[in-house]
């Protein structure tokens, strides 16, 4: 623990995320137990597990939407603690996509994408709009730029949410069940965007039940249950040769 205070930047340079012995409680309930996790740059990780296992809480701890109580989290060599400057830097560095999209309903798609670049990165509006347009094109909805989120379908909204995160030019993207609130025919259009993103080398942590997606893009699959990491492995071995009983049970239920 003490040696971690002087994190040597050189040795761990290729680590995007480093979580050491992290615990979290909700009141008396122990949600996350002794989490250790290293994520290399450009690594794509899928986190799965039964609902209530703490997988969402884990990734929400990584950008401090939830506060961990014990252990350490380092993002790109910066420790995540009470220091507001650290939190700000880390949040700029990490993009997040939510299950419920959480687009701002009072702003147009374009304004949604430009809000943070203008107010956080202090970009001129023109530049912010150009970047936004670039990413909207990448998620294939440039023609919806002037509409309001309420006028779009769920799949379109989620793609806007992805574009909105990308506009901050993040090094890491967190996905919290991005397709769970979508109708089946819309899941594919969102997954396609995510696959593109993965292929371009974005560091990604994705909580999802889309095992097909896990098989195609993941470098590593992590299985969590009752607040701890039970098993992690490359997708092939994970799916074909699960080690623990709980993993086997889980896989038999969802596949």
């Amino acid at each position: 623990m003490t040696q971690a205070m002087t994190q040597p930047a050189t040795a761990e340079q290729d680590l995007a995320i480093e979580v050491k012995g992290m615990h979290k409680w909700y009141g008396d309930f122990h949600v996350l137990k002794d989490i250790n996790l290293n994520v290399k740059r450009r690594e794509r990780i899928i986190i799965c597990g039964p609902s209530g296992c703490g997988k969402s809480t884990l990734i929400r701890c990584l950008n401090r939407l939830e506060v961990h109580q014990r252990g350490e989290i380092w993002i790109d060599g910066i420790e995540l603690n009470d220091d507001l400057k650290h939190i700000e830097k880390i949040r700029r560095d990490i993009g997040m996509v939510f299950q419920q999209f959480n687009l701002f309903p009072h702003l147009t798609v374009m304004e949604n994408c430009c809000l943070a670049p203008i107010w956080v990165l202090k970009k001129p509006r023109r530049e912010a709009e150009e970047t936004a347009m670039h990413y909207l094109e990448r998620v294939k909805i440039p023609d919806q730029a002037d509409k309001y989120p309420g006028q779009l379908s769920g799949g379109q909204q989620q793609r806007v949410a992805i574009a909105r995160s990308l506009c901050m030019n993040p090094n890491i993207m967190l996905f919290d069940e991005p397709t769970s609130a979508l109708d089946p025919e819309m899941i594919k259009e969102v997954l396609d965007v995510m696959v593109d993103l993965a292929n371009e080398g974005m560091t990604m942590l994705c909580v999802t039940h889309e095992m097909g997606f896990a098989k195609t893009v993941a470098d590593r699959v992590i299985f969590m249950d009752s607040g701890e990491i039970i098993e992690e492995n490359d997708p092939e071995s994970f799916f074909s040769n699960p080690q623990s009983d709980r993993t086997k049970l889980f896989l038999s239920q969802i596949l």
Binding site: W25, H30, K33, R70, G227, E228, E231, Q243
Partner: peptide, 16 residues
């Protein structure tokens, strides 16, 4: 990869 042994529930830190 070794077979996992479950982690016991710990009481939360006294400050929380």
């Amino acid at each position: 990869m070794s077979v996992h042994t479950p982690h016991p529930d710990l009481p939360p830190p006294s400050t929380s």
